[in-house]
């Protein structure tokens, strides 16, 4: 199952990296509006005559870029917070965990909507807003794991032999966290891709960037989308790409998650 997921993601990564040069000459230009698929425009054109294949390919770039950077940044930030809170403990730990409670308790998308509206909704703004509201879950997960690792005999031995804390964290605490971090980062990437697409779908995305969400936003704003059949080449490809990428991430994250919980091994969601 994780192989299927990886294959899906690989295809989209290749498309995102290779396609823009091929599609670039199409991207800024407009043609006859609302053309059904043809040899010149394999996915047709939208209501103001933009080539949709070029847009879908450019959208792959935006979605993957946002997913990768926001997912990594949120996990990194949360991981560092969790590492520090778990290892050092004390009042800073208690304060940080209250903050985590807060960020886990608030509704994410409504907050993201408000943040995107306030910050001005560029792509990087969305990434920053996402990281701001998404670091809490990685922090909680990492902290819990650090508390377990901290009790190991070799950590105590290292502490007693006077090794500096950064050495202990780097050599003894951090490495066993990697499988957990891999599962969390993939999950957060999925959340980030979905969040960017969702915001763009609601018209809160970067107006200058082309993403799958903005394609869907424009498609749904076209009143006759379902009546003249244009949904078939306008909304469906972008939606399908989005679903496939999210599915790919979900498959990989589920199989990574399954490796973490030995009780679920064998009887798990996938091989």
């Amino acid at each position: 199952m994780s192989k299927v997921g990886l294959a899906i993601l690989l295809v989209f990564c290749v498309a995102a990296v290779l396609a823009p040069p091929a599609a670039r000459h199409q991207l800024g230009r407009t043609f006859a509006p609302l053309q059904p698929p043809s040899v010149v425009h394999p996915l047709g054109t939208d209501d103001i005559g933009r080539d949709l294949l070029a847009q879908v390919l450019a959208g792959a770039r935006v979605s993957l870029l946002v997913g990768l950077s926001a997912g990594l940044a949120a996990t990194l930030l949360g991981g560092l917070v969790g590492l520090a809170a778990g290892y050092f403990g004390g009042s800073a730990d208690r304060l940080l965990m209250r903050l985590v409670d807060f960020f886990l308790a608030i509704p994410r998308l409504p907050l993201l909507i408000v943040l995107a509206a306030y910050l001005g909704s560029g792509i990087w703004v969305i990434v920053i807003a996402f990281v701001f509201i998404s670091w809490a879950y990685p922090a909680r997960m990492v902290r819990a794991q650090v508390l377990l690792e901290k009790r190991r005999a070799y950590v105590t031995a290292a502490q007693l032999s006077g090794l500096p804390w950064h050495y202990i964290l780097r050599r003894h605490i951090a490495p066993p966290l990697l499988p957990l971090l891999a599962a969390v980062v993939i999950m957060e990437m999925g959340h980030a891709v979905a969040a960017e697409a969702g915001l763009s779908f609601l018209g809160l995305g970067d107006p200058t960037a082309v993403s799958w969400g903005t394609i869907l936003y424009h498609a749904f704003a076209y009143p006759a989308l379902f009546l003249d059949g244009s949904w078939l080449w306008w909304a469906l490809p972008a939606g399908l790409c989005l679903s496939l990428v999210l599915l790919g991430l979900a498959l990989v994250s589920v199989s990574l998650e399954g490796n973490l919980d030995p009780r679920l091994k064998g009887r798990r969601l996938g091989p």
Binding site: A197, F201, L216, L247, V254
Partner: peptide, 25 residues
């Protein structure tokens, strides 16, 4: 499990679109 994982990966607005197509159109 596979089907439900797929559904979880599908944004609500896409499902909404499919539902509109199937039942409304």
């Amino acid at each position: 499990t596979g089907v439900l994982l797929g559904i979880r990966a599908t944004p609500e607005y896409l499902m909404g679109m499919l539902a509109i197509l199937a039942f409304g159109v």
